[in-house]
């Protein structure tokens, strides 16, 4: 379980995140939405220890995050960033095996164990990349590459997944695939996930709770039905929206109403 208690993160004198609290419980998916510059990525970077909060505390499995070594944090918290920028030829299988680094007995000339290889093979099956495992990463399409990045995060077997716009630059089908994989992992493996996304409808569909942020602060947090209201979305994004129920799933469906249409 990962918990942020009233954290404030600053860059110099600027407050990027101020007074945010949240709890990620096993099986839970929290979507973080808000305009650009709302502090979403900063919040995510502080949750895995990359940025230290100026005030407040982050608690991982009942201990402050700062008391863990880098490697033991990596065994518990895994990050999926936007597409990896690769400058050296690496095969998909090698790339995914990178997720097993934190489990190695030593950091250097160590070799993957049979278990590392079987975990990597399993996540490749899960993400349907099995047939591409010998390909070079830069030969894959954007959607395949993003699945490989997710596969590597799943290979860490961490109980907490932090995803920073994992579906940016992906087409409709691939967006849903990525989030469905995350949802499945959370439902079956006692894993929790925090997903930053700009797609409010995807957030409504795949998350248990939504954290709505503006200018570094929490505007609202709760089930999608409570948070994704026209009033709150207008306050945060300064845009009029229509909210109705999705005809199939019944979750809130958000449609922006632009000036020109009125």
């Amino acid at each position: 379980m990962l918990e942020a208690r009233d954290i404030t993160v600053t860059y110099g004198s600027r407050r990027a995140v101020s007074g945010v609290s949240l709890t990620l419980r096993p099986g839970n998916v929290i979507a973080v939405i808000g305009p650009n510059g709302a502090g979403k990525s900063t919040l995510l970077r502080s949750l895995n220890g990359a940025l230290e909060p100026a005030t407040g505390e982050i608690i991982l499995d009942e201990r402050p995050l700062t008391t863990y070594s880098r490697r033991s944090v990596a065994r518990r918290i895994s990050v999926v960033a936007q597409e990896a920028d690769l400058r050296f030829p690496v095969t998909v299988f090698e790339f995914v095996l990178g997720g097993r680094y934190a489990w190695a007995s030593n950091s250097g000339w160590g070799w993957e164990t049979a278990r590392d290889v079987s975990v990597a093979s399993e996540v490749l099956r899960e993400t349907q990349l099995e047939s591409l495992s010998g390909r070079l990463m830069n030969e894959l399409s954007g959607g395949e590459r993003q699945r490989a990045v997710l596969a590597r995060a799943l290979a860490t077997e961490a109980g907490v997944l932090l995803l920073d716009e994992p579906t940016a630059n992906l087409d409709l089908a691939h967006q849903a695939t990525i989030l469905a994989l995350v949802r499945k992992r959370c439902d079956t493996r006692e894993t929790s996930a925090l997903v930053i996304t700009h797609d409010i409808n995807l957030a409504a569909e795949f998350s248990d709770r939504v954290l709505l942020m503006k200018e570094g602060s929490t505007v609202a947090v709760g089930p999608p039905g409570d948070v994704l209201t026209p009033a709150l979305l207008r306050e945060v994004f300064a845009v009029e929206v229509l909210v109705d129920a999705h005809p199939v799933s019944g979750v809130p469906r958000i449609t922006p109403v632009h000036q020109t249409l009125r």
Partner: peptide
Amino acid sequence: LMLGERDAFDLGVE
């Protein structure tokens, strides 16, 4: 580290 400092950090490299 070859894949990026941020990735390396996230995966447990000091």
